[in-house]
């Protein structure tokens, strides 16, 4: 009876004396020992679950980097004029995605677009980088003289998805600027190849 009363009290590290006493006390009856072990198991389970959740929420950047590494195959390309607003995307896969599959490979630091017949307004080799800030992130493709940054919103879908989608807009030349050209945005969509 005494042991039950003590176990109802919350246990802390400071109560180690009590814990020691409780353990000794508990072993005196089978019923008390069973209850004590049950509570220990419950505490252990709660601790494990809490640690697991902590790990999942700890570093989304690391998680996304791991998901991106590998080979991706180009599926479709759409284009749109930002001046016209959303809903004006035009599917141009038939001329942008070549007959040969186009593969984008993310290594530890480098990216490589394997030579194919698809059209990419992106240097075929360079470095890549992911940055996460709060609920948004950016994927950068960097090569000498060029940097394309594509921003995205971080959601559960992004983190679990097997598809990669980025938007790029060409850097306009002086001539393009003078004619109001170069603002078209291209949306590239890839799916991951099995490893």
């Amino acid at each position: 009876m005494g042991s039950v009363m003590i176990l109802k009290k919350p246990l802390t590290m400071a109560d180690s004396k009590h814990l020691k006493w409780t353990l000794a006390d508990c072993t005196r009856s089978r019923w008390g020992l069973g209850l004590f072990l049950n509570i220990c198991c419950l505490a252990l389970l709660t601790f494990t679950a809490c640690t697991g959740i902590g790990e999942m929420q700890e570093d989304p950047q690391k998680e996304i980097i791991q998901k991106i590494k590998g080979s991706w195959i180009l599926q479709s390309v759409e284009m749109y004029n930002p001046d016209l607003g959303p809903g004006n995307e035009e599917d141009v896969s038939e001329v942008m995605v070549g007959a040969n599959p186009s593969v984008l490979i993310f290594d530890k630091f480098d990216y490589l677009i394997a030579p194919g017949s698809s059209r990419h307004y992106l240097p075929l080799v360079g470095n890549w980088e992911i940055k996460i800030q709060g609920q948004s992130g950016s994927l950068s493709f960097v090569s000498p003289g060029n940097e394309f940054v594509s921003k995205f919103e971080l959601s559960e879908d992004n983190r679990l998805s097997q598809s990669l989608r980025y938007e790029i807009s060409r850097q306009p030349t002086e001539c393009m600027k003078s004619y109001g050209l170069g603002g078209t945005i291209y949306i590239y969509q890839y799916t991951k190849l099995p490893e």
Partner: peptide, 17 residues
């Protein structure tokens, strides 16, 4: 034609769709 350009020069880029 698309992309639609509002400029009157009706200009496009030969290496874009």
């Amino acid at each position: 034609a698309y992309p639609v350009h509002h400029a009157e020069n009706n200009a496009y880029l030969a290496d874009e769709p």
